[in-house]
Nucleic acid binder design. Sequence first.
RNA 1: GGGGUCGUAGCCCAACGGCAGGAGGCACAGGUUUUAGGUACCUGACAGUGUGGGUUCGAAUCCCACCGACCCCA
Length: 822
Amino acid sequence: MAVSDEQYEPQALQAKWQARWEELDPFRASEDADDERPRKYLLDMFAYPSGDLHMGHGEVFALADVVARYWFQRGYNVLHPVGWDSFGLPAENAAIKHNAHPAEWTYSNIETQAASFKRYAISFDWSRRLHTSDPEYYRWNQWLFNRFFERGLAYRKGGLVNWCPKDQTVLANEQVVAGRCERCGSEVVRRELTQWYFKITDYADRLLDDMAQLEGGWPDRVLAMQRNWIGRSEGADVRFEIEGRDEPVTVYTTRPDTLYGATFFVVAADAPLAEEICAPDRLEALEAYRAEVAKLSDIERLSTDKEKTGVFLGRHAVNPVNGERIPVWAADYVLSDYGHGAIMAVPAHDQRDLDFAMKFGLPVQVVVHTGLADPGETGVATSGEGKLVNSGPLDGLSKTEAISRIIEVLEERGTGAAAVNYRLRDWLLSRQRFWGTPIPITHCPDCGEVPVPDDQLPVTLPDMRGEALAPKGVSPLASATDWVNVDCPKCGGRALRDTDTMDTFVDSSWYYLRYCSPGLEDGPFDVEQVRRWGPIDQYVGGVEHAVLHLLYSRFFTKVLHDMGMVDFTEPFVRLLNQGQVINQGKAMSKSLGNGVDLGDQIEKFGVDAVRLTMVFAGPPEDDIDWANVSPAASQKFLARAFRVMVEAGAASAPGTDAAAGDLELRKVTHRTIDEVTRLVESHHFNVAIARMMELTSAARRAIDSGPGAADPAVREAAEALAVMLSLVAPYVAEEGWERLGHGPTIARAGWPVAEPALLVQESVTCVVQVAGKVRDRLEVAPTISGTELEGLALASEKVRAYLDGAPRKVIVRAPKLVNIVP
RNA sequence: GGGGUCGUAGCCCAACGGCAGGAGGCACAGGUUUUAGGUACCUGACAGUGUGGGUUCGAAUCCCACCGACCCCA
């Protein structure tokens, strides 16, 4: 046994090679238009600088790096940039706590993470590094805001908004998860405020339709989530006259076919419409009810289990098709921002309406005959298909027929029309916090909202620190008097700056474009460079952004497309969502005390072993339970592979003719290359590593009990192994590559190519089944004909034992299988 | 309630509709080396694919129902 004296010492290799790589800088993307190499743009969702890198980062970046390094090896001109999503609340909170400036915390964390990324050996092009909190970056947020403003896509309006009481700022709908702040978990309350919005709803249909481009490239569940979030539904707007009120009220319904079954009318209690409609003698009751509703959290209001509440408004609405008078109620189960904030209630066929009707003794009128028991008696609404009944001209029609018929009727009479409704709301982008991009608007008493002219951008943040940043319900910027008071860019008169900052999701909506020309001073990005690099070939990041960043970024891309600045309409061709790193079945958390520190793991096992563990643990989209994986085992494997490389390197010289080597090992090597290539491209990284393990074992056997370390096939195997392994374990691969007699860097060694002749097997095992059960195995040539194989199978003694005479049918799948049906 | 993803050895996981003599790994047991432990090398045992139907010559794989887990929307 030729065990090497060489020990695998990961820390020593890291120290040695990190310094060398820094000099070699092998991962620079070439901007050269004459560079003929095909391009790949690979991107990992950039990091938020909250302290050092954690286990989650360790996973995403290790996975994305496999893909990036693979394309480098394949000789592509690869763009794999790095940056930081460096605006945001935690910096501000830290600044308040330590009486510091948010930039101090932010940039110090960025330096820590940058050093960790370098140690972690991610193949970044460091020359393109960006930080969204740099004025050179956020200036272009403001420039883009101005473009959106010009196009009517950025606007200010008053209305009920989501307010996080802990963070003291408003939130976008997407940032409210089940009634709680997506960031801090506090229960969100509703407040009436005037805020800035991006008109993402104008793009609802395109956001939906363009998903066709993403089918196959994005995980289905993310597409489903976005579809759900946009929530397009088709139905009708129906106008109801309200007795004692001049203006009719329009409701949106997805079930206009059930219009004859509307037995009451409900207005969202918190909508202004409620008091407009309310009869004078019922106002007091409405106010009392509203006070009660205000006490409830959104979580309570949204609960389906909650008993229905409401108050009669003393008015009646008139059903436009049958003239029936139906009472108007206010209730909290109708949301003020769904449709028009009012609904027609059809208790027979909608469970919520039925619950309400039962509670308040309102009539239930069945209009769809489903064959199920009367909802008025069972308390179970029937929402299924059936023939219409009690519905005048609709009687006997199916649901679909009735919907088109009733829409015709409504349109003829001018009391309604077909309508489309979306769940998607406009993107609320203003925030009452400091550490973000100032909104470049000046409020002038005479001119109104005046954008800061492009040539005066950026509007930089004033120098504020510590206590001055404490949340107080309005933006801290409001107290920076010198900063706030400015001359109106239009009339020169006294005016005030807008004091809100932008949602940090604005920063991340277009950062991928900035990477194409990160230093550009006369625009957000170089249109020509983006045309060459874009769109992103492979994006890697967490599924938590399914309806946040990913939706916003798609929206921005479409707007920029309409502005003629990008020639594609979808930013991310393929998306990979990695799972979470958990521990003992649970998310890591301080309170559970089950946290695992990435730095500690690297100290113990080395970068390569940690990266290998992340990639080998299972399919990339599955969670990794750190309690179920073994970085120690990864380290052992790397040591095994290292010894093979060292021993092969010591026994033969580079350039040896592999053709003279051991054929069996050569076949294993080439089969492995072939499979690993396919497995990496299809993102089956864990299986690719299993194949590398097999190759390592085969090489080991060849050295110990086969042709020996000096055999050219051993060198061939070791070299292929080094390059394939370099995607995951760059340090050990680089050292092995050097021991094999090659100069640095292995990162550009070139991907091995499988020789087709060595993939051909001399014989294959053909399974012979009788009635689906394996009864014999035959060694046959891979090129055997179907007829010949059938003859061999039928001639088999083992097979004949199961046959009484002529088979009914023989299925032949040469050369691997014959199935005989007796 | 609606939609989605997923159930394979003690555990993590493989398997174009075609051999589960499981690919790989962890843990376990044994052997060789070793003063011993560890390392290294070799060997072994362990499941029949959540349940029930269907399609098919053939189903872990496709379809339906149910059970269970997770995610999204109500």
